[in-house]
Design a protein around this nucleic acid. Structure first.
Lengths: 325, 325
DNA sequence: CTGAAAGCGCTTACAG
DNA sequence: CTGAAAGCGCTTACAG
């Protein structure tokens, strides 16, 4: 039993393939009674349009490529899912590629996607801007969680929330705060570090910096010792995963949180709420980042003008922050 | 600047498109010097084969569809990544679809994938076997984390490890053990529950069952109260996420782990190690499940005979289990 | 509203 | 080892 095609349907109905095709893609151009017959026999025959054929004819694949640095980092799954759901709205599916923290050259992976997608969403890419722009070679692209000159961007601005977090710590009596910086090649890491530094320079607080560190649990864990040695009583971590690592490291060292030290994360991923006590963090509208990215990408693909979007994170106070001793 | 095609390369070199095509797909059929010229000008022109055209001609899309119930559950990201990396080995990419815990009919999502993939990997599908088999409509498919009659399967057998976990608890003096069952429609949940029941019936222990529950953090959290009320001193949770929820719930109730109660998870996802203390659990070879699934799928696609694969989980003792008071 | 025909960019017998 | 040609299953001007 071969797969049904528009021809088998056409033959069955004694009409032309053109009409069958139109019944699906331009239903308004087909007489209603005919359209219904087509749809009905299509269903009966289990017809599914051949995407390759359609793609070849239209130049559109109905696929959006999504590149993430590490799907294992709990920030990305909700983002990817939101992208996928929003894309489904446009009859598109998601081609997912993980560049691996190791960094299997992002440009290589992009190249692999290029020939099969209508557009690309690069989430937190690490490669240099020039490299990225060369790699995408003109393919409609939107960058999430990073600004790249000349490419549409969807980011979350956590500046204000991070500064509020800092202020929250100072208000609680903390005077020495550790800043755990994320990966040097991560735009968000630099952005966040800068926000904290700016705040610190104008506040009654001493900032002690550590890093750059990889945004992994283990890196945060290892940093705990240095944090304790520094005499800091509070920690601002690049992200929740890292904060989580610090928490584990501090526990190993017998330090209590929030009793002896306070810890603040960033992003508010699932992990933040599964901890006991729950993590004080900056909540990012992850799903909305994903949805907006798809929206913007759609416009780029259609050649419409687009504006960068910048959402904002909000401080969420939970159990890992408390007054300094 | 239009995209380069085999024709532009052929013209540039004064050879036929057939030869250009062969230089890529059947290099052994092309004189070396010619092949090299082709490859070189291809690179110079930034040529990328049009996947739609290739797909239409060969009937292969180079895509494998992966359906997960909830990419947000930390079990799936490493699985998906392993699948993706292994697929890359076969020059294939991953089309990811999340059915959402809500359960956007899996068969609908499968239908959406059908026309664009060479094969399907269904991870922990929830739909009934008959429904699944009808939905895939003959497309090469392998099922991960579930057995479906007539479909090749890649699972992790945790029976022995779970029974060891139980024995570990009994040895530590626990006589009343709570079993938190996972979703009724999840094959693994039933499998695990059965393993525990079998063990319990032959051991000096009283088993108290709760559930079925959704495999979410909150469900475990809510269950804590009942667990405490039951007088159980130890908990076997369907998976780590649920175990994590119980831990949080117990903490809210002021119960210490492993002081007053012991908790055991299953899968050993990232979450298990980010907890303090770390979670005693059954470690599943998640990456290998993914790789094997792709291997098996490859054989199915090629029409080779396949055997189901069953890997085994191993008990990993960590910090959430201790002798009963 | 409908059909005949060309074309999308590949692959692959077939013939040399 | 190479080329001419047909075909994969759609879409879409073009003509009616």
């Amino acid at each position: 039993m071969n797969r049904a095609t528009i021809y088998s349907i056409a033959q069955e109905l004694g009409i032309s393939a053109s009409t069958v095709s139109r019944a699906f893609t331009r239903p308004d151009l087909v007489r209603e009674s005919v359209r219904e017959q087509v749809l009905q026999t299509a269903r009966r025959l289990g017809y599914q349009p051949n995407r390759s054929a359609r793609g070849l004819a239209t130049g559109r694949t109905g696929l959006v490529g999504v590149l993430v640095p590490d799907i294992t980092n709990p920030f990305f799954p909700p983002l990817v899912r939101a992208i996928e759901q929003q894309a489904a709205t446009h009859d598109s599916d998601v081609l997912l590629v993980d560049s691996g923290v190791n960094g299997t050259a992002e440009s290589v992976l992009i190249g692999r996607l290029l020939s099969q997608v209508d557009g690309l969403i690069l989430a937190s890419p690490r490669a240099r801007s020039a490299t990225l722009k060369q790699a995408i070679a003109g393919t409609p692209t939107v960058v999430v969680n990073r600004a790249v000159q000349g490419l549409p961007t969807v980011v979350c601005d956590n500046t204000a929330a991070l500064q509020q977090a800092g202020q929250h710590l100072v208000d609680a009596g903390h005077r020495r705060v550790a800043l755990l910086c994320g990966p040097a090649s991560a735009w968000a890491a630099n952005r966040r570090a800068r926000a904290v530094r700016t705040w610190a320079s104008g506040a009654d607080v001493e900032l002690v910096e550590f890093g750059p560190l990889e945004a992994q649990f283990e890196d945060g864990q290892r940093a705990a010792e240095d944090v304790v040695a520094s005499g800091a009583t509070a920690v601002l971590a690049f992200d929740d995963l890292m904060a989580c690592g610090v928490l584990a490291g501090l526990a190993e060292l017998g330090r209590s949180v929030p009793g002896e030290l306070s810890v603040v994360g960033c992003d508010d991923v699932l992990l933040a709420r599964t901890l006991t006590p729950q993590l004080t963090t900056v909540t990012a509208p992850i799903e909305e980042l994903g949805r907006r990215a798809v929206e913007v990408l759609g416009k780029v693909v259609d050649g419409e003008p687009v504006a960068n979007v910048s959402l904002t994170g909000t401080l969420t106070l939970r159990g890992t922050t408390a007054p300094a001793l």
